[in-house]
Design a binder for these strands. Sequence first.
DNA 1: TTGTGAAGTGGACCGCAGTCCGCTTGTGTC
DNA 2: GACACAAGCGGACTGCGGTCCACTTCACAA
Lengths: 215, 215
Amino acid sequence: MPDQPLITPLPTAPDAGTELPVLGGPARERCDAARNRRRILSAAEALVARDGAVAVSMDQIAAAAGVGKGTLFRRFGDRAGLLRALLSDREGAFQEALIRGPAPLGPGAPPEERLLAFGPAYLHELQDYAELLSEVEASTVPGELMTGGPYALYRTHLTLLLRAANPRLDAEYHADALLTPLSAQLVLHQRDARGMDLERLAAGWQAQARGLLAI
Amino acid sequence: MPDQPLITPLPTAPDAGTELPVLGGPARERCDAARNRRRILSAAEALVARDGAVAVSMDQIAAAAGVGKGTLFRRFGDRAGLLRALLSDREGAFQEALIRGPAPLGPGAPPEERLLAFGPAYLHELQDYAELLSEVEASTVPGELMTGGPYALYRTHLTLLLRAANPRLDAEYHADALLTPLSAQLVLHQRDARGMDLERLAAGWQAQARGLLAI
DNA sequence: TTGTGAAGTGGACCGCAGTCCGCTTGTGTC
DNA sequence: GACACAAGCGGACTGCGGTCCACTTCACAA
């Protein structure tokens, strides 16, 4: 299982990873590089767990990992990339469940049911790592957030489901419109500052989706 | 007409402004301070018009205005506050139209119609200053964006309309859910990177709202 | 074992937003 | 007009994310 499943690697950081001993691919990773990557990730994980993602700086991570700062940026592109790498396992599992998992989230159920299952499932996953993902959202350059990374997959997924469930809709638009209320920053604010619990958010999201199916 | 209508001033920057010659209020603004504020705003406006909001730094604005950097931050709190001040006239006009303007955006029309008028009107306004507002969104600390500033008014407005139009809804949730797809960052991405024109965005938003009225 | 080129490294460096505090200046009082 | 004091000022300073490039280390071939 790759370290960063389904996340397109940065052009500057191929990160082919996964120490396959055979089949020297187009660009194998040198073993000292792999060792440093592990060091960086485990140092970052420990610091984030202790102090929270907001309070951890790239210098701190570099120092804790015993590498230079340049190595962090060569490996992960920018701060958002490093934080995203910390999430990749969990995000990968969710993406896997979307594509190959059991119904109604995975294939097998009718598109209406799969659509209605998405929001609550995503919100449930989000509870664990909302703070980290919120930090990723904040430190990603605006346009890039929607373009690459996991959002592109979710957008495609929702577009296909919407198109199948109600062909009269502008599926592309509504995929965005259903995805933005799931933003980690918003959900965190709703949960912590306004006291809206998970069930309420999930029910609201489903109502939003059901409305689209009704027209 | 105040400089920053309906925008609650920062605690560190009272900005009572508006050179009222009479009625010495609780905290009159000294006239050199007012002169500097005008200098800063016009310098900022010129630089933003020339180079774009992203490319303009606080140091540049301070230098162009002929004041120290500390003055900028004393006056406007942070970068987002300064950029928001550049928008305040236009935002104020739109808020005015919401509250006291002609129907269907203003009062007089039934809530369903006022709701459906909001999205397209806001998107239309946004076209002019989307880049600036996107920069404000990006440089505002996450929680604060929804709490203060114009968003609070829009959220309240939508909440009231939704509650009146369909009492079965969780009006507070759906106010957020209808507001997030109007984020300047998203709209800019949809318009420029994905080639979705204004009519399409407006129609999509209305469909989203109409769905809520239907259930 | 040794040579070689590319992949990898790390810390000095840059421009940035935001803070701090000693100094200046305007204003109301006597 | 002189004074006192608070309001205002500004630039040096901090820590940050991110870049750069001279240097080191690895992997492979002869």
